[in-house]
Design a protein around this nucleic acid. Structure first.
Length: 474
DNA sequence: TTCGAGTTGTC
DNA sequence: ACAACTCGA
């Protein structure tokens, strides 16, 4: 080995320079660093990145490219099977080591194994995404957690993650290897261009993430406890896609939050970070989480195969206003308010009795923040087949939820404009509105806005019956 | 073994 | 008030 031989820094879902353990370790070798990103659509199988996330990826990579260029480094872009690409890169650059971040995704863990075996370089997997290593949080008997609260308490008992590390002062640039052009990757939508709403909503990249975090912690943290449940407002952090792509680390957020005054808002925000952590923990210990219910009796659930209903849900045409508003927000902005995610998920699973995996797949393709662990963990949570001891009778009523969290109907008005003129009294249940209220608002059910595709009371009763049945069988 | 407790609800 | 189970200590 000569000192001019490079080490490879393989960027994955950690597209930042600050608090990046693998990048830091790579620079500390003293050898030149070759930063690489590989667009790999074969290794993930059915969990290849969805359309909305690709839009984000494009812009995040552009930001990372620019940040590295400021330090005299070129980000090498390649497409293909990661193991093949890395093996070739190691050969052609004579790299001695590969540094990369870890992931709970089963396919990524398998890939790590393959890469480690397929190249001659030493392989170093570091923790860049979670606060703690999933194996370091253990029950008293050494097992993994399956319930959130004891898991969160165990994390809190550790007193928080290590302080984040700064970006490396200097990155010794390696000789540039062959690279593809980001613009050739086709990550952005062609015609039609559906990304207008995304462009208006987001600033991908490490700088955008830090800006967003700063704005939220300065203005949003104190009102977070109540504000985060109001979908018409901007009370949530909107940090999820930045976290998804690792443009900011959970440890950075933890420490930034702790620089702010203590209070209910801060406490709840920390607990939200721990939900993300919990899902990663769940997936790490249950690799089948995205596909199969954790509670095996749910395999016997009499799910309905109802393509028209699924399509109506996806398009925001169910006739249930807050559900439709949420689904349209998702389609237009690549994101949905968390409160509304629970409502639309509960509606799909319980009122329509469509398999949670169908909703999971749709979210995967349309959310800019789609994360395998969080997506699967939360869909299972709503379905009641996951880790939480969720009572099967917890079924969100979209009308009551609307009245509670979108009382004046502004959220519905914004995303379902055909109901905009409807009185707040009726906006979450136009089917009970008197004829004159509908007419004066320009609403004609079945024409300008659909009738509900399921009767809420009947849907609820049907779900309760089915849940009771599968439970009694076991 | 017992016992406390559970993000997000509904009627 | 309900209805009710499982986890974790």
């Amino acid at each position: 080995m000569t000192i001019s031989q490079p080490v490879i820094l393989w960027f994955r879902n950690d597209l930042r320079l600050t608090d990046h353990a693998a990048l830091l370790a790579a620079t500390e070798t003293g050898q030149p660093v070759l930063p690489v990103f590989i667009l790999d659509d074969t290794s993930p199988g059915r969990w290849a990145m969805g359309g909305a996330a690709r839009w984000w990826l494009h812009h995040s990579l552009a930001a990372l490219q620019a940040a590295l260029a400021d330090r005299g480094c070129t980000l090498i872009l390649r497409r293909g099977d990661s193991a093949t690409v890395l093996a070739e890169l190691v050969r052609s650059t004579r790299a001695t080591d590969i540094f990369t971040g870890g992931s709970a995704d089963p396919w990524a863990r398998r890939l790590d194994q393959t890469v480690a075996e397929a190249t001659d370089a030493r392989f170093h997997r570091m923790r860049t995404r979670t606060l703690f290593h999933p194996d370091s949080i253990r029950t008293k008997t050494g097992g993994s957690y399956s319930v959130y609260t004891p898991f969160a308490n165990a994390c809190l008992a550790l007193g928080g993650p290590k302080p984040p590390s700064p970006a490396p002062m200097e990155i010794r640039a390696a000789d540039v290897a062959a690279t593809e052009r980001l613009d050739d990757w086709g990550l952005l939508p062609g015609k039609p261009d559906w990304a207008g709403g995304l462009r208006d909503t987001w600033t991908p990249g490490e700088a955008g993430a830090m800006e967003r975090a700063d704005a939220f912690l300065t203005h949003g943290l104190t009102g977070y406890a109540a504000g985060r449940d109001q979908p018409a407002g901007d009370g949530t952090s909107m940090l999820s896609p930045h976290l998804r792509f690792g443009e900011i680390s959970a440890a950075q957020l933890w420490h930034l939050a702790h620089q702010r005054p203590n209070g209910k808002g801060r406490e709840i925000f920390i607990r939200e970070l721990l939900w993300r952590e919990f899902c990663a923990h769940l997936l790490w210990h249950n690799p089948g989480l995205p596909e199969a219910p954790l509670k095996p009796e749910f395999a016997k659930m009499p799910w309905r195969d109802d393509k028209p209903a699924l399509t109506a849900w996806q398009r925001g045409q169910t006739g249930v206003p807050i559900v439709d508003a949420g689904m349209r927000q998702l389609w237009r902005t690549g994101w949905m308010h968390n409160r509304v995610r629970m409502i639309v998920a509960s509606f799909l699973i319980k009122h329509l009795m469509i398999p949670w995996q169908d909703g999971e797949a749709w979210f995967w393709d349309t959310l800019v923040d789609a994360d395998l662990a969080s997506n699967a963990g939360n869909w299972q949570w709503v379905a009641g087949c996951g880790a939480d001891a969720a009572p099967y009778f917890r079924i969100f009523n979209p009308v009551l939820q609307g009245g509670k969290f979108d009382a004046d109907g502004d959220y519905v008005r914004h995303f379902v404009p055909e109901l905009a003129k409807l009185d707040a009294k009726y906006i979450h249940a136009p089917w009970v509105a008197p004829a004159h209220a509908l007419t004066s608002a320009g609403v004609s059910l079945g024409k300008t806005y659909p009738h509900p595709i399921v009767d809420l009371a009947q849907g609820r009763a049907r779900a309760l019956e089915a849940y009771a049945k599968i439970r009694s069988v076991t």
